[in-house]
Design a protein around this nucleic acid. Sequence first.
DNA 1: GAGTGGTCTAGACCACGCT
DNA 2: GCGTGGTCTAGACCACTCG
Lengths: 233, 233
Amino acid sequence: MTGVRTQPKARAIADSVHRRIVDRIWRPGDQIPHEAELAVEFGASRATVNKAMQLLADQGLIERRRKAGTRVAINPAVRATLSIPVVREQVEANGQDYHHVVLERIEAIPPREVLDRMGAGDARMVRLQTLHLADDLPFAFEDRWVNPGGAAGLAEADFTGISVNEWLVRYFPYSRGLLEVGSESASPRDARILRVDAGTSLLVLHRTTWNGDVPITDVRVAHAPGYRMRTAF
Amino acid sequence: MTGVRTQPKARAIADSVHRRIVDRIWRPGDQIPHEAELAVEFGASRATVNKAMQLLADQGLIERRRKAGTRVAINPAVRATLSIPVVREQVEANGQDYHHVVLERIEAIPPREVLDRMGAGDARMVRLQTLHLADDLPFAFEDRWVNPGGAAGLAEADFTGISVNEWLVRYFPYSRGLLEVGSESASPRDARILRVDAGTSLLVLHRTTWNGDVPITDVRVAHAPGYRMRTAF
DNA sequence: GAGTGGTCTAGACCACGCT
DNA sequence: GCGTGGTCTAGACCACTCG
């Protein structure tokens, strides 16, 4: 035997239980043994078994309730974690050259829709439109509103060397956010900027972040055709 | 004071550290105190501090390495967990009536592309096309290949009362899967089935699941216009 | 009321990876 | 080498919720 990396015990237990469910030894809706019992079976402490079971519960594979015990989930939802890095890193991870262009930078009161999403009253904010390019081809068009009250130094910041995207992520960690993923037909503006035909189908990400109750930014990112988000689960 | 739910200590510690990062007391790239030190500061055991820090590391907010210690992440990626329930539950959660129609059920050898994704050699599989409806309006069009070798009882199963989607999820837990989210223009077939114009922009989810190395199913779900995936992070 | 999971502690040993 | 995080244990108390 060579190179068999030892696996944490909790992980091994989780895998064992997972396998029993997959192998239909324990079927959806079935109750499975309680932690103390599993601890004895696997020769582990209850804490370790608990950690293992929480892993499975986080995946949605089992459902746990005090007193009622643990059951195999009936209709487990697919739970997949999307990781969305800064655009520059996405491009570079693809082996392409990245650069970006600031198309517009103005100060104004955002449209109702944006204010509503941010939960803000009428307030002047900064609108920054950026085109991200990969090997000089349009990769994503970003249309962003930033609350100056949530990002000190915004007015003085220079976004030629670093994109707003990266500047915000790096200097203004948020405490919570919302993400919407949808599909939209390219508007004439999208089309012109991304250099595609109007009406082309685009993957659009919409993201809003807050620091406590203070809105930081609201951004719509329209990706060039062909872009897909991928994740394993 | 009323109704202030007690919070797990690990969570409270994680929130405190999160706040210090958000408040720029600890900035991106900074090293933060090691676990033993935090344990003393928060009056907790090291195990509890470890749990708290793992929560933050899972969110991508901090990066931890043995010996090197813990640092605030420089360009933290947005990490959001998507939960994708069975289609019926999505529709019903929306307060709408659900039903589905099986459009086609044949046995054949899938196209190269599908076989490649599943990592399967030439093998006969079952193709099931299903239209999911919400209040009698098209909600999603599902085009699925199922490996009979991975789903015993498939040939005998009746999908009028329960959709393949739900049948598989309920009776055949997978061990791993891949998810791709993209945007596509409605093909003539998509358009006819979803009752939209050809070329309409559709959100398309592509999912493949395995049980160990045995492919179970490969499915493309095209959603009716307007559908969005939402998640908080 | 009582059984089950949720959480915490103090202590321990180990694996990794800087230096 | 050696400091730091990764993991495990045995024991304990608590919170929730089912019956």
